[in-house]
Simulated assay, not measured.
Amino acid sequence: MKKIIIENEQLESIILDESSITSIEWINEGVDIRMKIYWCGQESYSDKIDMRNIFTNLFFRGVNNVEINFAYTNDFSIGNIEITKFSFEKVDSRYFVHFTFDFQPQGYIKFQCDGMIFSIVESPRCP
């Protein structure tokens, strides 16, 4: 099983647009956030890992000042949240993170954190 870890500023090389958040979980006594991501992948990683069989997560350490705003404008229930834009800015030793969602739901998630990790794990193929 292969695993790729991308940390902090290196996340600038990851394209999350058109991927989606499938789960948001507060972990480590509510101090950190883990997001399970359905990642569309990108060509620059296709020679390193089998993109057809991956699990991807975003981890954020030391999260605070969380602001979540979703607006559902149709009758659909909550499901995956398609990421329109993911961005972050480092100020001193903190990261200001911003997700934008332009489809269903429409809205954003914003917060500050001490660090970020994007993990790509190749799962074993089924026989």
Results as ranks from 00 to 15, higher is better:
residue 42 Q to T: 09
residue 42 Q to F: 07
residue 114 D to R: 02
residue 122 E to I: 02
residue 48 K to C: 07
residue 77 S to P: 04
residue 121 V to A: 08
residue 58 L to Y: 00
residue 125 R to L: 15
residue 47 D to A: 08
residue 49 I to R: 00
residue 114 D to P: 00
residue 86 F to E: 02
residue 99 F to Q: 02
residue 87 S to C: 07
residue 107 G to Q: 04
residue 40 C to P: 01
residue 70 F to S: 04
residue 97 V to Q: 07
residue 44 S to W: 01
residue 61 R to S: 15
residue 124 P to Y: 11
residue 78 I to R: 12
residue 106 Q to R: 15
residue 102 D to N: 13
residue 90 K to Y: 10
residue 101 F to M: 14
residue 78 I to W: 05
residue 45 Y to P: 01
residue 103 F to I: 12
residue 115 G to A: 14
residue 117 I to T: 10
residue 90 K to M: 14
residue 62 G to S: 14
residue 34 R to H: 07
residue 76 F to C: 13
residue 50 D to S: 13
residue 51 M to S: 05
residue 87 S to W: 03
residue 80 N to H: 04
residue 94 R to T: 05
residue 55 F to L: 09
residue 89 E to L: 13
residue 43 E to D: 14
residue 102 D to P: 02
residue 108 Y to D: 11
residue 57 N to H: 09
residue 98 H to I: 00
residue 115 G to R: 07
residue 80 N to M: 03
residue 111 F to I: 01
residue 77 S to M: 13
residue 126 C to W: 06
residue 113 C to A: 04
residue 35 M to A: 03
residue 79 G to F: 02
residue 33 I to D: 01
residue 112 Q to V: 14
residue 115 G to E: 06
residue 83 I to V: 03
residue 68 I to C: 07
residue 73 T to E: 09
residue 71 A to S: 10
residue 64 N to A: 09
residue 101 F to C: 09
residue 54 I to S: 05
residue 77 S to K: 13
residue 113 C to E: 05
residue 54 I to K: 03
residue 67 E to P: 02
residue 76 F to I: 15
residue 81 I to F: 11
residue 44 S to F: 01
residue 96 F to Q: 10
residue 80 N to G: 12
residue 97 V to L: 09
residue 121 V to C: 08
residue 86 F to S: 04
residue 71 A to V: 09
residue 70 F to K: 04
residue 66 V to I: 12
residue 118 F to K: 07
residue 46 S to A: 13
residue 105 P to V: 06
residue 33 I to M: 05
residue 105 P to R: 06
residue 58 L to P: 01
residue 120 I to Y: 11
residue 60 F to Y: 11
residue 57 N to V: 10
residue 97 V to F: 07
residue 61 R to F: 12
residue 107 G to S: 03
residue 76 F to A: 14
residue 93 S to R: 15
residue 124 P to S: 12
residue 96 F to C: 12
residue 78 I to M: 13
residue 35 M to P: 00
residue 52 R to F: 07
residue 94 R to H: 03
residue 74 N to W: 05
residue 108 Y to S: 13
residue 83 I to P: 00
residue 77 S to Q: 12
residue 107 G to W: 02
residue 65 N to G: 11
residue 53 N to G: 07
residue 38 Y to M: 08
residue 93 S to C: 15
residue 105 P to H: 06
residue 34 R to V: 15
residue 98 H to T: 03
residue 114 D to M: 01
residue 98 H to L: 03
residue 37 I to F: 02
residue 102 D to R: 10
residue 71 A to D: 13
residue 114 D to W: 00
residue 44 S to L: 03
residue 82 E to N: 08
residue 109 I to Q: 00
residue 118 F to Y: 12
residue 42 Q to N: 09
residue 37 I to M: 03
residue 100 T to D: 14
residue 111 F to W: 00
residue 114 D to N: 09
residue 38 Y to W: 06
residue 74 N to L: 05
residue 98 H to R: 07
residue 83 I to A: 02
residue 70 F to E: 07
residue 121 V to D: 10
residue 116 M to N: 08
residue 59 F to W: 11
residue 34 R to C: 11
residue 73 T to N: 09
residue 107 G to C: 06
residue 84 T to M: 09
residue 70 F to I: 06
residue 85 K to N: 13
residue 84 T to D: 14
residue 117 I to S: 06
residue 117 I to H: 02
residue 102 D to T: 13
residue 101 F to T: 08
residue 65 N to V: 05
residue 88 F to Q: 13
residue 105 P to T: 07
